[in-house]
Design a protein around this nucleic acid. Structure first.
Lengths: 154, 154
DNA sequence: TCAATTGATTAAGTTCTCTTAACTATATGC
DNA sequence: GCATATAGTTAAGAGAACTTAATCAATTGA
C-alpha cells in the first residue's frame, strides 16, 4: 500500500453522492423495464463476466443455487439469457447474455450516461478534463481490485 | 451548457464501474442488515432529505402511498424512523431518521468507505490527489443538479 | 357551510423472491 | 466399480412488496 490513512474525505463524499444518484436512477430504470432487481443484477453480472454458471450467480448474490436457477429460468424465458450445456462438464450450464439481454444492459448504461452528461455539461472544460483524468485512474484501479470474478471464500 | 457532446467516454466507463461495484456492495450490506432494499432506500432518502411525508416517499420510489405507508410502518416498528404529526397540516406525517436509523446509514457509508480506501491505497499520491480534486468537483455538481428534492412531475 | 381534495392508513389479494428438501445426472477418487 | 461430491432443477411453502378499494380525518375553496 502506497498511502494509508490519508484518504481525503472529499473522495468518500463524492462517491457517496454518485452512488446515491446512480442507485436511484438504476432502480427507476429497472422498474420501468419490467424486470425485478435480482433479475437485472444477473444481467449486469453477466455483462461484466461474459459467462458463468448458475451457482456462480448464487454465490455472488448470496442466495442458494435453487433461487439462482429460478431467476435464471425467467431470464431465459424472456430471451435475455442463453443457457447451454458446458461441454467440459455436462452437469454445468454456461450462461450468457443474448443479443436482447446485451441490448437491455446497454440501454441502462445509456440512461446513466444521459444524466452523467447533463452533469458534465455544467462543468468548465478544465474541470471536465480533471474529472475525465480521475475517472480513468479509478476505472483502472477498479479493474484490478475487482471482487468481481469469484471470491471463493467459505 | 458550457460543453455539449464532447463528454469523454472515460467518464462514462468510470462511472459505470463505480456504480457496479457500489451497487454490489450496497446490496450485500443491506441483506446483512436484515432490511429489504425498499426499506433501506427510504432510510437513504431521509438521510439526504432530512424529513418528508409518506407520499413523498411513494413519489420518489414510484409506488403508491399505500405501499409507502406499509414500508414506513415497518421501519417505525424497527425504531429506525420517527413518524410524527405535522403541526401545520394534521393529515400529514413528518418522517425522520431516529438515532438508530442514522447510525445504520452511517455504517453503510463506512462500509463503502472501507472498499474505497482499499482502492485508493493502490494509487500513487499524485493520482490520489487528482481523484480527490475531481470528486470535489463532482460532489458539488451533484449537489446542484439533484432530482432529489422533489420533481413534482405529473 | 358544505363539497371536493388531499394525506395517510387498512384490508384483501396477487406476484415474486427465497428457502428447504427431494431428485437427476454427471464427475471424481479410492 | 462404487461411494461421494457437485451442478442444476423442481416442488411446496413462507415472507415481502406491491396493487386496488374502502375508509377516515383534516384542509381548501366556492
Amino acid at each position: 500500500m502506497t498511502n494509508a490513512s490519508i484518504i481525503p474525505a472529499s473522495i468518500h463524499h463524492g462517491i457517496d453522492r454518485i452512488t446515491h444518484r446512480a442507485f436511484h436512477e438504476q432502480v427507476r430504470f429497472v422498474k420501468a423495464s419490467g424486470l425485478s432487481m435480482p433479475q437485472f443484477t444477473i444481467l449486469m453480472q453477466l455483462h461484466y463476466q461474459r459467462q458463468c454458471g448458475v451457482s456462480d450467480i448464487g454465490a455472488r448474490m448470496d442466495i442458494t443455487s435453487a433461487a439462482a436457477s429460478q431467476l435464471v429460468e425467467k431470464l431465459v424465458q424472456a430471451d435475455l439469457l442463453e443457457r447451454s450445456e458446458d461441454p467440459l462438464d455436462r452437469r454445468a450450464k454456461q450462461l450468457r447474455l443474448t443479443e436482447k439481454g446485451r441490448a437491455l444492459v446497454e440501454t441502462s448504461q445509456a440512461e446513466r450516461h444521459r444524466w452523467v452528461n447533463g452533469l458534465m455539461e455544467t462543468l468548465s472544460p478544465a474541470d471536465l478534463q480533471k474529472v475525465s483524468a480521475a475517472m480513468e485512474i479509478l476505472a483502472t484501479a477498479l479493474q484490478f481490485s475487482r471482487p468481481d470474478k469469484l471470491s471463493k471464500a467459505d
